[in-house]
Design a protein around this nucleic acid. Structure first.
Lengths: 240, 240
DNA sequence: TAGATTGTTAATCGATTAACAATC
DNA sequence: TAGATTGTTAATCGATTAACAATC
């Protein structure tokens, strides 16, 4: 009994030491750090303290130090953080330096918008191709990215290393396309289809964009804001 | 001393009873409940228990009951939840029934995509107009929505009740447009510009879409996934 | 050295889960 | 009534903040 506990204790401690147990809350904040540090770098700033950064980003200095420490000591006592170094480190953590590749499936307005943006390049992701069913655009290029038929999607993914599949197809087609990509070895799916793909999470990582959910959250906030000011104009007087 | 405590106790209890202290974590989950319940409704299902819903949505039944109870008893012991009723209640909470209106500023690919989608209508939001600087499209309609000059944005918002401003303009123009809208009385901004708008949060509610952050999160997951399988193939043997 | 600021531990806060009494 | 399932309290877990010793 005792020995089993000991083994477990050791195992758990080692896991913690390996530091691949970064809290999800921290990971979700990393891109935001990356963004702000990139801006500061562009401004030509060299160093920053957690206190200063905390003011700019509207979070606590404590949280910044705690977060960054999940990955090791990026700062220096009495000095703060070297912006260039920190930015580079976070880039690395986020895989910007991995040189991932992507295909965009669905060349509608959203697909085109994603073809046009510099968002991918900035994050080290190369867009290899667009795929669509529309014969009139197959064989052309959109913003410099070649457009192929969805029929060729499987073969393309098999023959090229495609890390990420971007799904901007109508809801009805989403699952079939996703399955094709997974079977062809795509590791991650960036899903703009208005549905949750039920895929084996051991086979593929899915990152969902639910624009509708975001719009609804905004509506909720609007509603609660108006309710407070309209329905309770005398709340002060009520307190006592 | 005692009496002050009592007053505070009463005050706090009243606040809790008013239930405008819904935890942020719960609010963020509401749109997802709404989505799933909408699907179940479309399937013609009449009732569901927290246990059944929890399996479909991949959350705990406890969380579902806890969440829904923030807004009052929507269910019935021994029966579960009436899907139609629950869906309607959540719609109400999320402001779907408020009949909000929106304008989209920026008629690029993203603006067009937002003009084309049924996402707004489904959530009770009417798109009144698009605004752009491109003379060649001003005066036309895109997916049935009239396109006006950005120069007319202020007057339009003043003369019509515009609740939500959707920002799909380039980064450089974002802040000026946002300020114009706030001055003209727009209450909420749905911000797709790749930057954080520093606006007085008392004047306006801002909901940000940071697509780049989402892409980076996906890359992070890809990276940590590959690291685990590549760098530690003998982790099992290591445990002891 | 003195001052600044991190890294890190401990305390607090909030969110999730478990358990069960209330009740349909 | 017996069975089912909610509403709700209490226990657990994780995330945030505060505090301060370590150290540049």
């Amino acid at each position: 009994m005792e020995s089993i506990d000991k083994i477990h204790g050791t195992f758990e401690r080692r896991l913690a030491e390996q530091k691949n147990v970064v809290p999800p809350a921290v990971i979700k904040r990393l891109p935001r750090y990356h963004r702000y540090l990139g801006d500061l770098l562009a401004e030509g700033k060299l160093r920053i303290s957690s206190a200063e950064l905390s003011e700019i980003m509207n979070v606590t200095a404590s949280q910044i130090r705690q977060d960054l420490n999940c990955f090791g000591g990026f700062g220096q006592q009495g000095y703060g953080y070297n912006i260039k170094y920190l930015h580079a480190k976070i880039s690395e953590l986020l895989g910007v330096t991995e040189g991932y590749s992507a295909v965009i499936v669905g060349a509608g307005n959203l697909g085109r918008a994603l073809a046009a943006t510099r968002m991918f390049g900035r994050r080290g992701v190369t867009r290899l191709a667009l795929f669509d069913v529309d014969e009139s655009i197959i064989g052309t290029e959109i913003y410099g990215i070649p457009v192929y038929s969805v029929d060729d999607l499987y073969d393309f993914c098999k023959n090229n290393r495609v890390d990420i599949g971007v799904l901007t197809v109508p809801k009805e087609a989403a699952y079939a396309v996703a399955k094709t990509m997974v079977e062809a070895g795509v590791m991650g799916i960036w899903n703009f289809a208005n549905m949750e793909l039920k895929l084996n999470s051991k086979e593929v990582i899915v990152e969902n964009i639910h624009l509708g959910d975001s719009l609804m959250t905004l509506c909720y906030e609007l509603k609660s804001r108006t309710e407070v000011s309209e329905k309770k104009p005398h709340s002060e007087a009520d307190d006592e």
